[in-house]
């Protein structure tokens, strides 16, 4: 009787896990599946689970249509936004962790950084658009790199500050007594000690910037400057029948970040970050 119950439980368990995994995998599989179908099969009212005549035509036409340009825009913007955030956040967090500014600036700034995290970004968009328009940053990649700081900078400051706060001061003090300048201490002593934390923070910031949609949509108009998420949204809106091509672009936009899933899993279960978004 006991054994029967155990087998029953195990069967239910396996069924449930399989169901959960299926729910997650089917949409991702459907991208691959659709991207390999020819245009006629895609609009067949009876959707097929395997492409009947697999073709790479969608990939060829997408790559031939200048998608590389958009792909490289995404890379440039995401990498630059991340580097900017990490450098600025590292410097600022160090100052916040090691120096007491007057007027409670330390605490006020850290609270403000958390407040920014909960703002709906659209409320900032109108004034920023006017501001950026006035200084020639609309319709440039630089404008995107700066506006993405709204997401990546507060996030990086909060995490890197957490790391620096727990770091013992002894090494830094020893180096200072030996006559090293503050900048020297920062670069040669502190930076190596928090390296792994900084790498993990960079990966999270990179994913945020890679997927950003709102400012990428509002601040850039020329097709050759668009990032991948906006290209995808245009496909959804305008070329509604090009499902195969759309899915091919979707895969191009997803693969570079899926390789980080291992890091995301490990760090997030450590309670490392509050949220990706």
């Amino acid at each position: 009787m006991y054994r029967f119950k155990k087998i029953l439980y195990n069967t239910i368990f396996i069924l449930m896990v399989t169901l959960v995994l299926a729910v997650i995998i089917v949409p991702i599989y459907w991208m691959v599946n659709t991207s390999l179908k020819n245009p006629r099969e895609v609009i067949d009212p009876i959707p097929s689970f395997f492409p009947r005549t697999p073709t790479l035509a969608n990939y060829r036409s997408v790559l031939g249509s200048g998608l590389w340009k958009n792909f490289s825009n995404s890379v440039i913007v995401a990498v630059s936004a991340t580097l900017t955030s990490i450098v600025l956040a590292f410097l600022a967090s160090y100052a916040l962790a090691r120096y007491r500014f007057p007027l409670h600036i330390n605490r006020l700034f850290l609270i403000w950084v958390l407040v920014v995290r909960i703002l709906p970004p659209i409320v900032l968009a109108v004034p920023l658009f006017t501001l950026f328009n006035g200084i020639g940053l609309i319709n440039t990649l630089a404008g995107l790199i700066i506006s993405f700081q709204i997401y990546t900078l507060p996030y990086s400051i909060w995490i890197i500050y957490g790391f620096l706060k727990t770091l013992p001061k002894e090494y830094e003090e020893a180096a200072r007594i030996d006559g090293a300048s503050p900048m020297r201490v920062l670069v040669s002593i502190v930076a190596p000690l928090v390296r792994s934390g900084i790498i993990a923070t960079s990966i999270f910031a990179l994913i945020l910037a890679w997927n950003e949609f709102l400012f990428a949509l509002l601040f850039v108009r020329s097709p050759r400057l668009l990032t991948l998420p906006v290209v995808i949204s245009r496909y959804i809106g305008e070329y509604t029948t090009q499902w195969g091509e759309l899915m091919a672009i979707g895969l191009f936009a997803s693969l570079p970040i899926l390789i980080f899933s291992n890091v995301v899993y490990k760090k997030q279960t450590e309670g490392f970050s509050m949220s990706l978004k």
């Binding site: 991948l228 998420p229 906006v230 995808i232 949204s233 959804i236 979707g250 936009a253």
Partner: peptide, 8 residues
């Protein structure tokens, strides 16, 4: 990306 998810 949310846009990729929306596409699917």
């Amino acid at each position: 990306s949310t846009m990729v998810i929306c596409a699917v």
